[in-house]
């Protein structure tokens, strides 16, 4: 059956491949059992992130000093591309801060609203994948003394993690 393609009328900036790009981001996260919140740090290649937001039609002026409005853009973007589902609950991440390093990476700190951690977590992490076909992401979860990892590609944007409670 034919499906109508809805074209979003964003006039995107030209996105061209660069010879030496990085295309890798990762999340380090831990479930805070006291606050029942996920504490997550996204580490991204800053210029990849900048260009993805430009492509999204929401460019950020200066990553090292973002405004309140830009925080909302980033929150929305990250929540659309990094989600943790536990049972019928889905994470909603709130921006806590960021740090831009001179080595080309930046850390973005997020905390979720309260969420119950169940045995099976379904994680979607497709940050930057819409814009960079070679993008790969990885999640490292620390929970109750155990470490869990999951890698994501544009062909595998969602993975399950089974945690030992």
């Amino acid at each position: 059956m034919k499906t109508l393609l809805l074209i979003v009328s964003i006039v995107a900036m030209p996105l061209v491949s660069q010879a030496h790009d990085y295309f890798f981001s990762f999340v380090e996260m831990e479930y805070n059992a006291v606050s029942q919140r996920i504490e997550a740090t996204l580490t991204v290649t800053t210029h990849d992130f900048e260009r993805a937001l430009e492509e999204n039609g929401t460019p950020i002026g200066n990553m090292a000093s973002i405004s309140k409005e830009e925080i909302e853009i980033i929150e929305k973007y990250v929540n659309a591309h990094f989600t943790v589902k536990s049972g019928d609950q889905k994470s909603v991440l709130k921006f806590m801060g960021n740090e831009v390093s001179m080595d080309g990476t930046s850390n973005w700190y997020f905390e979720s609203e309260s969420i119950d951690f169940q045995e099976e977590l379904s994680i979607r992490y497709d940050l930057l994948m819409d814009d960079f076909p070679e993008q790969q992401n990885k999640v490292t979860l620390y929970h109750m003394g155990q470490t869990y990892t999951a890698a994501f590609t544009p062909m595998n944007k969602t993975k399950q993690i089974y945690i030992e409670n």
């Binding site: 890798f24 990762f26 580490t43 080309g104 790969q136 990885k138 470490t147 990892t149 890698a151």
Partner: peptide, 22 residues
């Protein structure tokens, strides 16, 4: 100098865990 690559600890996030796409 804030080198992006070289120091051992900087490759840890890439190498650990799930090897599906390495």
């Amino acid at each position: 100098y804030p080198s992006r690559r070289g120091p051992a600890y900087m490759i840890a996030d890439y190498m650990r865990g799930d090897k599906d796409y390495i």
